[in-house]
Computed example of a mutant assay.
Amino acid sequence: MSYDSSAVIESHVDAAPERVWFALTDAAALTAWYWPAAMQPRAFSEPVVGGRFGVEAGEMGFAGEYRELDPPRRLVQSWRWAGDDRDSRVTIELTPAGAGTALRIVHDQVDDETAEMYRAGWESCLTRLPAYLEVTPSAGSR
């Protein structure tokens, strides 16, 4: 099987890159927006190179390791979905865009079918991010 496919997702949110970075790297923030609250997600995050992160809800979940952190511009992490036998890689780039932030997510080192599933998953998750940022105005201003 070939693992040279990628899911590429581009999005925009009306929040500064620092706030988006916080939402992507803080455990409580991930718990609040990554999956629907009805799923009762739990998260952990140690945003340092070599630190671990993950989100789980019931039997679903993923975990990985932070490989590169350049706040609030770029984050690279290994990624393993629960039950998988190999890691993939996620690269997230945040670029100031007007009064908000452009996000570019590349989830690579996967096969074609997995790339499509991850693209749909990221797009679903990102639909909840703006609402989290709207109701959490101080996110990232610690």
Rank of each mutant, 00 (worst) to 15 (best):
E93W: 02
D70L: 05
P71K: 03
V48M: 03
D85M: 06
V76F: 02
G58N: 06
T101V: 09
L30Q: 13
G83M: 04
M39W: 15
A29I: 02
Q77S: 14
R89Y: 08
P71I: 04
T91M: 12
R74T: 00
F44H: 15
A27E: 07
F44M: 09
A27T: 08
L24W: 14
T31V: 10
A32E: 14
E59P: 03
G100S: 06
A37C: 04
Q77R: 13
A82T: 11
F53D: 01
D26G: 01
W35V: 09
A29S: 13
A29K: 03
A97P: 00
V48I: 11
E68R: 14
F62Q: 05
S45A: 15
D26C: 07
A38Q: 10
G64L: 00
A97H: 12
M60L: 12
R52D: 12
G50S: 11
M60V: 12
E56S: 12
G61P: 05
A99H: 10
P96A: 14
G51E: 05
D85N: 09
A28M: 08
T91H: 07
Q40C: 04
R67P: 01
D84Q: 13
G83E: 02
G58I: 01
V49I: 15
E18Y: 05
G100V: 07
A28N: 14
R52H: 13
R67A: 09
R73M: 01
G54M: 11
E59K: 07
S88G: 15
T91K: 07
V49D: 10
L94E: 06
E56C: 08
A23S: 13
L30N: 06
T31H: 01
L94W: 09
D87F: 10
V48N: 00
L30D: 05
T25W: 12
S78V: 03
P36M: 04
L24P: 03
D70F: 00
F62G: 01
L69W: 05
W33N: 04
R67T: 09
A23D: 08
A102S: 13
V76P: 02
Y66Q: 05
L24K: 04
R52L: 14
R42L: 11
E18K: 09
Q40L: 08
R89A: 06
V90R: 04
T101H: 07
E18M: 04
F22M: 00
P72D: 00
L24H: 10
A23R: 05
S78R: 00
G100D: 08
G51L: 08
A28R: 15
A43H: 10
T91G: 01
W21C: 02
T101D: 09
V76S: 02
A99Q: 14
V48F: 02
F44T: 14
M60G: 00
E68H: 13
T95E: 14
S45F: 11
G50D: 08
V90Q: 04
E56G: 11
D87Y: 11
T91C: 10
M60K: 12
G58R: 03
Y34V: 07
V55A: 10
I92Y: 02
G54F: 10
P36Y: 06
P71E: 06
G100K: 07
